[in-house]
Write a protein that binds this DNA or RNA. Structure first.
Lengths: 339, 339
DNA sequence: CTGTTAGCGCCTTCAG
DNA sequence: CTGAAGGCGCTAACAG
């Protein structure tokens, strides 16, 4: 735009050209009431000509906050999280915010470092889904203490903050009841890490469905594990050793279900004849595999956009006595052919 | 950490407590040679106790650059892009950088705004895969002019900058030759937007394979379109109207292939008996659908990590006469059951 | 209506 | 070895 050695044009530059004070430029550009319209127009034109762009860093230092949102997710490439990110980005973009994306890699320590790093960049707010290995959540207290709005989604924790979740218990309940009504009797649950709320709630739903339908709960039918495909594979192996042999499995999420699914294929176990499978989150992949996977659908994109909206709302509410909200979205059981 | 009204501890605070000058603190914390070891230790301890964290914004303003990398992708939720992001994040994190993720939404205008926004935040460098609708690339000239390192990946353009691509032509060639050797004769190519290099190169490979194997090229067998599932659906419809009827289709990428795939299912067309399909990028989904999709595998995570490494290298090379590099990664044909 | 001053938090001279 | 001063680009407060 201008051959000034790669430097950006500053307000000072404009001031010199126009022979006015920098503050006048600043005011004109931000359409302050008490500047003559003529001058405003002139200044605008010059700014345009020189390709002036306000320096966000300088503005941020001055304001003490950037127009950015920090996001911490355990993984980026998972369908669920990338869809959530998509939702967050759209809302943020429309509001003139940019997003810092950090990945904890399911690692507690990295999550702490991510948090610190976001704080040091004075983000306006933070959106988090905690890692599988996170048990202690003191690092988020610092965020609260600095009055930085915080929203948790999906994998939430006990902290007093905004939360966006789905109706995990109800979703699990419907999934398991569906299995029961389809005639399955020996239903195993491959559960997630026990300290995560989602795991607990999905277990609750599982038990409630059994109870309501008069099926006795067996402790050994809950198999603890993680949230990844490998956990599904491991879970499958444990499950096959059980006796009496289970006839259905409700998995804490789709990756785990896919793990089981692949093992069945490998071991030539017929789905659903020999083993019925239900997943959770309804990844796009669920409807494309064969047989298509029955799964509890979870509105990922929407969770992201709602989380971002809640965050922005808190950012824009001056009052520090913001009351944390909890949004619980509905799940929907997508019945397909693995059940 | 400290009940100072949510404000972060600053160097000034430390200076007051210690009754020394701020500059002394700054020097001690950054381990400057000429500060007494004793004082250094004291200062470090105090900083720790008060939970001091340097303000990245202030540092950035001073340096003129942040320790951040801007990334612009057309979509976040696509397997390919989210895996690339994963690769970028890992490398960035290890180098102490954070990433700004912007999504162009395949929209030229939004891409321009994204670029501007990243510039205004003084990112240390930018990594981009251009949108389908981007024909003009002047907005990246500004980046170059401000001496901000730039790396393109996958969807690159003509600008003189670092690039990370795969061997598109060779990949396409192998895919099509594989079809020919499997006995298919009437091979259609669902191509991408013609102004993108990847589209051109994949077309080149397609033609080269036909030529080498003495199959006559037919203009109507190249069907132009976009890069999404819907484009696959549209492409399928056009393809079915052709006569003589094609017996195989090579798709510019996996989403398009999936679109075709789903149409085949819907219209009860046997794969590969009636129509063979090959995709490009080998998304995880490819191996899970039934029949599993033959696809050209593209190392997405690696592309991201290499792009980030190239960028950091340029960031760290003081010399402004940095010579742009082009890394071409290898593809690998994953032969499965749709061919 | 406009200019001057001061300061956000940090780092880099330049003096001692 | 350490302190004081100035400035990165911008804006808010105070003067006229």
């Amino acid at each position: 735009m201008f051959g000034n050695g790669g430097k950006q044009t500053t307000i000072k530059d404009l001031a010199k050209y126009m022979k006015v004070a920098p503050s006048t430029i600043s005011r004109a550009l931000r359409d302050y009431p008490d500047i003559s319209d003529k001058k405003k127009k002139e200044i605008r034109e010059l700014a345009n000509k020189l390709g002036y762009q306000p320096d966000s860093i300088a503005q941020s230092l001055q304001r003490g906050r950037t127009k950015t949102i920090g996001v911490i997710v355990p993984e980026i490439k998972h369908d669920f999280f990338s869809s959530v990110l998509d939702g967050i980005e759209d809302v943020a973009y429309k509001a003139g915010y940019s997003i810092f994306v950090c990945k904890s890699n399911e690692d507690y320590t990295r999550e702490i470092i991510n948090t610190r790093s976001l704080l040091s960049y004075s983000v306006a707010g933070i959106i988090v889904s905690i890692s599988q290995t996170t048990q202690d959540t003191d690092h988020f207290d610092v965020v609260k203490m600095r009055n930085i709005p915080l929203v948790f989604f999906d994998r939430v924790c006990d902290i007093k903050a905004n939360k966006v979740v789905v109706n995990d218990e109800q979703g699990a309940f419907e999934a398991v009841e569906h299995l029961i009504q389809s005639g399955y009797k020996r239903i195993v649950h491959l559960a997630g890490p026990t300290h995560l709320e989602i795991s607990k709630n999905r277990i609750k739903g599982y038990r409630a469905a059994l109870e309501k339908n008069g099926i006795q709960f067996r402790k050994e039918y809950i198999i603890d594990g993680g949230l990844d495909e490998e956990d599904g594979i491991r879970g499958f192996k444990k499950l096959m050793k059980l006796s009496p042999k289970p006839d259905a499995v409700f998995c804490v999420n789709d990756p785990v279900a896919i793990g089981v699914f692949m093992q069945c294929k490998e071991k030539k176990i017929r789905i659903p004849r020999q083993l019925a499978i239900v997943g959770f989150s309804d990844n796009p992949i669920a409807s494309l595999i064969n047989p298509p996977l029955t799964s509890v659908s979870q509105p990922a994109y929407e969770m992201g956009s709602i989380a971002a909206k809640m965050l922005l709302e808190e950012i824009n509410s001056k009052s520090s006595l913001f009351k944390p909200k909890r949004r619980k979205l509905k799940t929907k059981l997508m019945v397909r052919s693995t059940t």
